[in-house]
Design a protein around this nucleic acid. Structure first.
Length: 489
DNA sequence: TATGCCGGGAA
DNA sequence: TTCCCGGCATA
């Protein structure tokens, strides 16, 4: 049956979830119909909201129609048929139904999220990737009437087809082997097994779209579960935006990315996720287990959040790349290593160290001349006289309220080439987010301009000095609406 | 609202 | 390369 046709209808879908369903309130696209012990609910999914629902719900299991026509439930950790099997009559069979006590234990286990500290390949035998995934979906017999069973099959097919349309975000190991062959083929090859710490794709793989789709399935599962733990693992504003379909805050092209810098002495590690930096602090500095179950929040004091201008940073990185003058400029590996800029992957804990990328301890501490910090614009209209600042920071000081500086790397680059590294840093109080409201502004303190645009200087410009009447007296830059080169700051 | 100026297009 | 301007950010 055509899946798109299915999507145009309002489907009643049986979805299992092992924990409280987040994001349902206010979502509008997913209406809980029945729910029992946080373990299952029946939802009505509007097709156009299905993706939104997928972003909030826990699609820990899906229903598939096997060869024999029976509906089977698969979980992300399901090898094949360990889940509930529904008969055509709507009754459920539990091949290995555990006693009620055991189920309670398993449900309680759902509160503990499995950390993906292990490689994301095939899980070891006997160990599921998601132990909290429901293996005992409770399907009330009264709703599984004969007529409804087919509709559930349709719903399951719709969900399956949706997942198939996002091959990038569906790891292989979440697909049961008995899933339809086409689905399997669509998934294979486009998502190789990766480790938890490195999220990247093969650039030669043509099947990977250049603009990754929003995360679904297990990514969303992880996201929701992580949030339910109150673990500040991801950019919550992104989640809020993603869940409520807020318009993306309009920014200029030079977008900022929040990075997390370890404040431990002599540690210059900069990671892209708070969870990563927390784990880094725990593991390397506090000497604790990398998992956060035993965390008391102490690691929050050892890292800070900072905003990194992605564009200018990438330029800086590309400048720092030891490329030969004849060789073509290599594309900035920053994007390759940090796909978060285009597709946030919250649970990946992208432990990307800029230090590793640069092959040095710190891009600023070693690349920036210690006594000459040139602050100047790269605009050709502006005066190019370098301004030498005595006492310029010899190393990146993360506790500075803000730092907007440029440096000229000591390498054989044309003198006009400026590596502009714009870093603004702010310390956020630890926040927990509810889905009811969008995030308030992170810090009401004076936030530096979020781009490479300079803040307005004190000096009067040609317009002010001469006025509109004497525009011919303006400098050419002012006449051209460029940065004034006569009255520089 | 005025100003500064970035980014981009046209010549 | 020069010139111009739309549009955004900021005061």
């Amino acid at each position: 049956m055509n899946s798109e046709g299915l999507l145009n209808k309002s489907l009643k879908v049986g979805i299992s979830s092992c924990t409280t369903v987040h994001g349902l309130a206010g979502n509008g696209g997913l209406h809980a119909g029945a729910r029992k012990e946080n373990c299952e609910f029946v939802a009505t999914v509007d097709s156009h909201k299905l993706q939104s629902a997928a972003s909030t719900g826990r699609f820990l299991c899906a229903l598939f129609l096997d060869d024999g026509g029976a509906v089977k439930e698969y979980r992300s950790d399901d090898s094949a048929v360990s889940g509930t099997v529904l008969t055509k009559e709507g009754k459920e069979k539990r091949p290995n139904e555990a006693p009620r006590e055991d189920r309670d234990v398993q449900e309680r286990r759902c509160d503990v999220l499995p950390r993906d500290t292990e490689p994301r390949g095939q899980p070891p035998a006997g160990r599921a990737l998601h132990p909290c995934a429901s293996s005992q979906i409770l399907v009330p017999t009264h709703r599984a009437a004969k007529g409804h069973a087919d509709r559930e099959v349709m719903a399951a097919a719709a969900l399956t087809s949706l997942s198939a349309t996002n091959p990038l975000v569906l790891p292989q190991n979440t697909v049961p082997e008995t899933t339809s062959k086409g689905l399997k083929e669509s998934l294979s090859g486009s998502y190789g097994s990766t480790t938890s710490g490195n999220w990247s794709w093969d650039a030669s793989d043509q099947s990977v779209p250049s603009t990754p789709s929003p995360p679904l399935w297990t990514d969303i599962n992880k996201t929701s579960l992580l949030l339910s733990q109150g673990d500040d693992l991801i950019d919550e504003s992104e989640i809020t935006h993603f869940l409520f379909e807020d318009p993306i805050p309009r920014k200029r092209k030079n977008s900022m990315k929040v990075m997390f810098k370890c404040l431990w002495k002599n540690c210059e590690t900069v990671l892209s996720s708070s969870s990563g930096i927390q784990r880094h602090v725990r593991t390397f500095h506090l000497g604790r287990n990398g998992d956060s179950e035993d965390s008391d929040g102490e690691e929050d004091f050892y890292y800070s959040e900072m905003e990194v201008n992605v564009d200018t940073l990438s330029e800086g990185l590309s400048c720092l790349t030891p490329a030969s003058p004849t060789a073509p400029m290599a594309p900035p590996t920053f994007y390759k290593a940090l796909p978060i800029f285009s597709c946030p992957h919250p649970s990946q804990r992208a432990l990307i160290s800029l230090r590793a990328e640069l092959g040095c301890t710190s891009p600023l501490s070693q690349s920036a001349p210690s006594t000459l910090c040139q602050i100047r614009t790269d605009h050709t209209y502006q005066a190019t006289a370098a301004l030498s600042i005595p006492g310029a920071p010899s190393a990146f000081r993360p506790n500075d309220a803000s730092a907007s500086l440029s440096w000229q790397p000591l390498r054989t680059t044309p003198p006009t080439q400026i590596c502009n590294f714009n870093v603004m840093e702010r310390r956020l109080p630890f926040q927990h987010t509810t889905f009811a409201k969008p995030l308030p502004p992170a810090v009401p303190t004076a936030k530096p301009s979020t781009g490479s645009r300079k803040s307005r200087g004190e000096a009067k410009k040609c317009r002010k000095v001469y006025g509109m009447e004497k525009k011919d007296l303006w400098c050419t830059a002012c006449r051209w609406k460029k940065a004034c080169q006569r009255f520089t700051d």
